[in-house]
Amino acid sequence: MAMIVTRTPFRVSFLGGGSDIEEWFSRHGGAVLSTAVDKYCYVTVRDLPPYFDYSIRVSYSRVETVGRLANVRHPLVREALRLYRKRDVEVHYDADLPGRSGLGTSSAFAVGLLSALENGAGRFVSKRALADKAIHLERRVLKERGGWQDQIAVAFGGLNHVRFSASGYTVEPVCLDAAFKKTLIECLHLVYIPTRRISGKVSFSNRTPTRRFVPQLRFLQDSVEEGIRLLKDQDIQGFGALMHECWLRKRTISRVSNAAVDAVYRAGLRGGALGGKLLGAGAGGYMLFVCRPTDAAAFKRRIHPLNLVPIRFDDEGTSVIYYSTGKGA
């Protein structure tokens, strides 16, 4: 039986979130600064042997065994299999971190699944094509609310400046001095706040941008260029302060925070963080802080160590890590 396994990174978004929503960037343009990190989801797709009383098996946080595609409850899996007219198949999802927590996990699943289906059919597909297909699946077919940055970040990998316009998007890698890039990752601290949510239900993207939000969204969008300049100048303090200002502004236009999130953010600042933000749509999940290297020890003492998640940059993006045709030698 043929089997393929893909590995797709999760992502951390620094600046510009919200301007990647099509309702916004089709009129105003958009920009984000984000990176893929070394926490992954793994998607296995294999042909199902003809010995079972079901034709489709899907394993994620639950296990589904069904005889008809229409009976698959996971919408992303169901519609992906429909697009590829795939039957007699098993799909298995594993991940390093919990889903629905602000790291682009659902889009990583989409990109990894589409990569497995494309490569399993014997077709080479570019990372851009995978991002485009995932955007189409999530935003057009499933009609899930949200932006475009997640699919792009996890497909391409790396630290990127992504620009959006009515005609599409461009991806420009942000090149930093190797020594500073190592310092930068040591300054980033990912903290888990154990409250999961479905992003489309709480995010700014759940409503059309109104006139009163335009100045704040423009500031968030324009902050990307400033953030890149600060990184190239190796100005960690300025970068942290910019993230802090953007977080304060985003809280005014979106229901991204709550008492638990605010308490963690205040604790981080008291521990020496220069700034930070809640990742993704908000209301729980992962919060990113930026600290000076000299303040890392004090920060870790202030934040419970079990909630800290070590990260490194991922420069590869989605990849196939195992492929077997199922045919003998």
Rank of each mutant, 00 (worst) to 15 (best):
V12W: 00
T65H: 05
S115W: 09
E90L: 03
V45D: 10
R62N: 13
S223H: 09
N258A: 08
A70I: 12
E172G: 04
L142H: 07
T252I: 01
E79Y: 13
A153C: 02
A36Q: 04
L279M: 01
R82P: 10
L113V: 07
R46W: 03
C291N: 12
A36V: 03
G102P: 10
V12Y: 00
V141Y: 08
N71P: 06
A70R: 15
F14M: 01
S107A: 15
T318H: 02
E186K: 13
R249I: 10
Y54E: 08
R140F: 10
V45H: 08
D314G: 01
G284D: 06
G17C: 00
R100N: 15
I321R: 07
I56A: 02
E22L: 12
V125I: 15
R196Q: 15
D38T: 14
V45Y: 08
R85F: 04
R82L: 12
L288K: 00
G284R: 02
P293C: 03
Y93I: 15
Y192M: 03
V290L: 06
R207T: 10
D314S: 04
V290G: 00
A70V: 15
E23Q: 14
I198L: 14
F299C: 07
I303S: 06
L269T: 01
D47I: 06
Y286W: 09
G147E: 11
H92A: 12
H304G: 10
T170E: 15
F52H: 11
K327A: 12
G227P: 05
A296M: 06
S13D: 03
P310A: 09
R211C: 05
P173V: 01
S59P: 05
L176N: 01
D315Q: 11
A179E: 15
F289Y: 09
E186N: 15
I198E: 14
I135C: 05
V37W: 00
Y54H: 15
R251F: 02
R292T: 11
R140T: 14
P75N: 08
T8W: 04
I152Q: 06
Y40R: 01
E245F: 06
F164M: 03
P173Y: 01
P194E: 14
A329F: 13
K181A: 00
I253A: 07
D38S: 14
V111C: 01
V256G: 13
A241C: 07
Q234M: 11
G238I: 08
R312P: 02
S26T: 13
R85K: 13
Y265Q: 07
L231F: 00
G18F: 03
L137Y: 07
D47L: 09
V320L: 02
D177I: 02
L230H: 05
R212Q: 12
V309Q: 13
D233H: 11
S107W: 00
